[in-house]
Nucleic acid binder design. Sequence first.
DNA 1: CAAATCCCTACAAAGTTCCT
DNA 2: AGGAACTTTGTAGGGATTTG
Length: 262
Amino acid sequence: MGLPKGFPMKASPRLSTAGSRKVSPALHQAQQIARKYSEIEPVSKQVAVTVARLAATPMRLTSADKDMLNFLFARSKSIDWTDLSSPPIVWPSNREICIETGLSLATVKRCLRRLAERGLITFCDSADGKRHGHRCPETKRILRAYGINLAPIAVRLAELKELHRAAHEEKVFSKQYRREITRARRSIRMTIDAGLEYQLEGPWVEFLEALSLITDGMRTASMDLAELREIYSALVSLKERVDNAFLRASHQHNMNPQRGSK
DNA sequence: CAAATCCCTACAAAGTTCCT
DNA sequence: AGGAACTTTGTAGGGATTTG
């Protein structure tokens, strides 16, 4: 990906982007989302904090990311969230963030980048690359600020809540599916074993192979709901075939019981 | 022009997760 | 338990812009 190693970046110094933040589609989109801040219903800082925390896990944020979010929230004032005339921007320097969060510089940069990629923050860069801002001395409202913009969290509030709800639901369903998969697997296995043990007529060895085909290398812990559902339905149809075969064979066995009884 | 900021990538070390 | 594979963190090296 990107340019080959050692690619000369000096064709036109004015156009060179070396040394400044690269824009990815995700970063760009977060920027667009942040723009809608003035059109939304105000969201209290407390609600924003809570929803961001809930969304952190499904968004696969690291603990450093979460520390960073907490720090950024701590830097914003309540009025920044109720006053829609200016987005909730905070302007700590990276150095300050390092000192106050205990994260290294590299981690600070990476966390900010990740939060922006996830669409939780965007950057309002000043011309000099430094972060700074001004508040009205009386009202404490932000008049002008360059730094880290938390507006996407407010704009995406409903979406983030839904993300958390869906993740929670998936967790519950996954648990259910894993339980049912284990039940079906054991039931199939026991039926096959019985068929073999009583030497009933039936393709038990093939069934066994079919079962391992479905369940071998299965790591239910790291599977998503769709994969679990697929495995479950494969097991259900196998179970039906196995049960039918067993039923037929045991019926024959009862008609003709001298063979293979123990 | 140096200082103060910010940004980037590459690579190695350390930590974590998953599989056998 | 041990090892492979992946993720996260820290370090190093390099660049841009503005200000005094």
